[in-house]
């Protein structure tokens, strides 16, 4: 019997994981989410920006990062537009334009007075990686070869006249899952030009981000789905990240149960 515990068929683990995650999403328990100091710092930073400030948003991830990063992006758009902030979006990842488009899809319904080109711009993906960032230091228009994600001439969008370079923005807020990501922004934009940088990242990238936060090269971070859920709570719009925390809680608990069972089986059969 103990031998069986040490060698549970992985299909059983998969099946129970599906069951636990599905049940948690279909019937959420609503575990209380208490914002941590880190997420609070992000919220306070955005809250302290003067009305009309221009924030550069970097959408440096692909669709795989949507569950963890998009809730934070929606919360930021909500918090920002309530404070009349304005956004210039771009990215070094091929799906950057589509990700920004998804993030701002809530605007039509929730902020009907906000206008594309005046309150936000979606420059979209442009190739070049970190060289793109360097180019945006001298001209976003040139770096984007004159066109936004939808093919509009960037010169016709008034917001870009106010912030023709990335240096003219008041803050950077980037959503990242890997490379190119926060390191490129730190090396070329935020540190040399003293522009505050906030980062939203996925859970597996949090350990890598911590030294940068401690060194204040990153002002503050929304850390994984947990951070995104906390941000949703702070903004007052609990959404998919908040719902996802139940699923994450119970799936973690299930993994721990399997680890305990595996160790029981291992230790008791090893004695023999």
């Amino acid at each position: 019997m103990w031998q069986k515990l040490a060698n549970i068929d992985r299909r059983i683990i998969y099946a129970l994981m599906i069951l636990v995650i599905a049940l948690s999403l279909i019937k959420p328990v609503g575990l209380a989410i208490v914002p941590t100091a880190e997420t609070q710092r992000v919220y306070d930073f955005i809250d302290a920006l003067p009305s009309g400030s221009i924030v550069y948003l970097g959408f440096d991830f692909s669709a795989g990062g949507i569950p963890e990063l998009m809730p934070a992006a929606h919360s930021l758009v909500r918090q920002g537009f309530r404070k009349d902030l304005r956004f210039i979006c771009a990215g070094m990842w091929v799906m950057a334009g589509d990700m920004a488009d998804t993030a701002f899809s809530i605007v039509e319904e929730e902020f009907p007075d906000k206008e594309y080109g005046v309150d936000w711009i979606n420059v979209g993906y442009k190739p070049g990686g970190e060289v793109l960032l360097q180019k945006m230091l001298s001209s976003i228009y040139e770096a984007a070869v004159g066109r936004d994600h939808y093919g509009n001439d960037l010169k016709t969008l008034p917001l870009l006249n106010e912030a023709p370079t990335i240096k003219d923005t008041d803050a950077l807020f980037i959503f990242v899952t890997g490379t190119p990501g926060e390191r490129q922004y730190i090396a070329h934009v935020s540190s040399p030009h003293n522009i505050p940088l906030c980062v939203s990242t996925i859970s597996v990238s949090v350990p890598e981000l911590m030294p940068l936060i401690q060194a204040r090269q990153v002002h503050a971070g929304v850390l994984g789905m947990k951070g995104a859920a906390e941000y949703e709570v702070l903004v007052g719009n609990p959404g998919s990240a908040t719902a996802g925390m139940d699923a994450q809680s119970f799936s973690h608990a299930l993994i721990i149960v399997f680890i305990i069972l595996g160790n029981l089986g291992y230790l008791l059969t090893r004695e023999k």
Partner: peptide, 27 residues
């Protein structure tokens, strides 16, 4: 198409990580 497929590939990791944690974390 693209968004759900990309997210699906990424989310399947949870199953591999779960099974790998069960096998790897032995005292």
């Amino acid at each position: 198409l693209i968004a759900p497929m990309n997210a699906t590939v990424y989310s399947t990791l949870v199953f591999y990580i779960g099974a790998a944690a069960y096998r790897a974390f032995r005292v």
